[in-house]
Amino acid sequence: MNAATQPRPQPQTPRDEAYNFAYLDEQTKRMIRRGLLKAVAIPGYQVPFGGREMPLPYGWGTGGMQLTAAILGAEDVLKVIDQGADDTTNAVSIRRFFARTAGVATTERTPEATIIQTRHRIPETPLHADQIMVYQVPIPEPLRFIEPSETETRTMHALNDYGVMHVKLYEDIATFGHIATAYAYPVTVDERYVMDPSPIPKFDNPKLDMSSALMLFGAGREKRLYAVPPFTRVTSLDFEDHPFEVQKWEHSCAICGSHDSFLDELILDDQGTQSFVCSDTDYCAQRVSQGRAGQ
């Protein structure tokens, strides 16, 4: 069974008419969409926007929610994941929020979704051209931990002054023999701007490169948004003789047997017995429904 043969998901919850469609007022949504157009025109550039207070706390996805609210239409099918899973509390909370305020259909199945809001993962199932990924971003500035001043980092971006990013990588190799950044691994977008891909594991970085889907990034507290348009080159920073590489596991998923997905480690008992399962719960369930199984 695949997505094409499935009926389109229908809304399950009637819209709460006390709020404007998708909570934000139309002027605010327009302002955000203007920011998004600019972001798409300058891939990887952080566009300041007049972020609003949302009824969820800062740091819990307010940036992503504002972008989703700005682009959401009545016909959209929304998927929300946190850590790759649809049933984590924060994902449930955000999905409910849009089901209530916009009355849109929601889904857990990646191929069915037209908009996927995510925290910390990119789905394993390849994305297609009709999909938009919305990332929740805590700290949008990849240079922040090297240079705390916003005035200075904006100048560094403007002047393409990124040498210091490689200083950190050099130092990792000199100290550990490897580049020691495991998530929020910085990338260069379209050979110009250095960008923080949000705290996704570096495992997911290659999925950004030349993706068919539009990638939108929203940081609510820092009031910045940025984008990677479809089919844009996204390269992870590295050295010629120490190339970027992704995590590999010796294990496979205990549920679906997958050898090539990002695995969560579970500790099963007091003796520390480990088990590994797919972080992408939908991907795992799809494989099980196709008859795959772990040991």
Partner: peptide, 15 residues
């Protein structure tokens, strides 16, 4: 908000 978001799951990054 930003301090309290540390209570959200971070197990993918931690992994």
């Amino acid at each position: 908000g930003f301090v309290s978001h540390l209570k959200l799951p971070h197990y993918v990054d931690f992994q």
